[in-house]
Write a protein that binds this DNA or RNA. Structure first.
Lengths: 247, 247
DNA sequence: AGACATTCATAACGCAGGTTATCGACGCTC
DNA sequence: GAGCGTCGATAACCTGCGTTATGAATGTCT
């Protein structure tokens, strides 16, 4: 899973906006790559912002460790995602990032990013759009934390993963690999691990979610989508037309 | 309160990065202005994204109306804030925006924004940094929704307002004007209006917050800051050095 | 294969916060 | 200033979720 694949699949490279030079520039971000182990911390909160990463394999999450001893997971990153854009414009990290399972990442620097922006406005627009869409996903989580019950939060979380994984071709027979522990899911959804377990049992009893260790199947994704009234415009939407003239 | 004041006060215009042309461009965004009434909806969720606004007077909030009948307020905007940047890169609004009290706004278009970006990289960086900081505030709210109790959420919310208002010179004797109803505060914090009232009483009894109708006083802001372990780096931080060479 | 650490399911119990209701204080309009 | 609508305080009651505990299943190390 390269960034190029991801950007194209997210509809940001359509309309013939990406020249072959653009593609070469994008691939150039991924010349370096590094194998990382499960649980490895890529950076801690408050560390200097020196680089960003593309995830090529594996899952990661960004998190905040809180004064009261708990952790809030902000976002789960999948292959093809850019990590660290949250910190763009800051000199210190606003959140830590750690790998969930083992994988491969491609780090690149602020300088590389600026150079790319200078060379291709189309890519600049595309990358900014990707970052903005990640924020939209975060906002959606905020809405769920504020105003929905546990089973709706979990259903929404799983359905979001399902859609994002489907887009990168990682869903088969409505099922996907899901390396998160229930404790981690709880940290993402603002729930205790125990209640995540209870809620999984509930969704299982209702025939909405089947889980076997690290494999999740959604027997009827549409039913789940109805339960959570999923707002998917922000995940798949292309850049608005006005960007074409700019880029 | 103009955008220029705001950008400068937020430390994004320091380092002599803003030329007099930059300043003229910024002020040019605010040539149009319009008086708006209390409660006026500036746009609804899903409306076409045609313009952005600078708030010159008054408070506003962005919100989502949810299927279960409740509302989640995403962010409260104060004078000097840019509204609508959340939707940058989308063709439909992700959230509605409404005025809290009456005020004055200056609308500007996508085209104006792009033109400004093309003419001044320094301003482009500055405006993006402002948008990124607004997202950081949102992330902080998410953390509080996920992992903190009602009194901590409310204390954090009030302290955040206090800091933001202080920065624009709207705090006097540790007190400020706060036009939000308890129902609206509840919608922002994921609490019922009743519990917001209970929590205000609690903070009052502890001597942390004094409230008289729409006026709030924090007798001991530092004590409140300790209670919420306020992370203020994201509010006041200047752009990192690497941006200077770019801009 | 044995020892140990994780992860997960389920139960029992308590409490923070939701819900509903009532009442008083303001701020409108005419 | 009478009537009305909105806002906020407080109380009573209920429930969803946190907490703690226990045991079973699985994965890992040697």
């Amino acid at each position: 899973m390269t960034l190029l694949d991801s950007v194209v699949m997210q509809g940001l490279g359509r309309h013939g906006a990406l020249t072959s030079e653009d593609k070469a520039l994008l691939l150039g971000l991924e010349l370096n790559s590094r194998r990382v182990s499960a649980g490895e911390v890529l950076w801690q909160e408050s560390a200097d912002v020196d680089l960003f990463c593309v995830i090529k394999e594996g899952w990661a999450y960004s998190y905040r460790n809180l004064g009261n001893g708990s952790m809030q997971i902000l976002k789960v990153y999948l292959p093809g995602d850019i990590i660290g854009m949250r910190d763009f414009g800051f000199s210190r990290r606003l959140a830590g990032v750690a790998m969930i399972n083992e994988g491969v990442i491609s780090p690149f620097t602020y300088q590389q990013l600026f150079e790319l922006f200078g060379r291709s406005p189309a890519l600049a627009a595309g990358i900014i759009a990707v970052a903005v869409r990640q924020q939209a996903i975060l906002t959606e989580r905020l809405v769920y934390l504020g105003r929905y019950a546990a089973h709706e939060r979990l259903a929404h979380f799983l359905y979001e993963l399902y859609l994002r994984l489907k887009r990168i071709g990682a869903v088969e027979d409505n099922g996907f690999f899901m390396p998160l522990s229930q404790e981690q899911i709880g940290d993402a959804l603002g729930l205790s691990a125990v209640h995540v377990s209870r809620t999984f049992s509930m969704l299982r009893d209702e025939g909405l979610v089947v889980r076997d260790r690290q494999h999740v199947t959604l027997p009827d994704p549409e039913a789940l989508a109805r339960l959570v009234e999923f707002n998917d415009t922000y995940i798949d939407e292309a850049l608005p037309p006005v960007f074409q003239s700019f880029a």
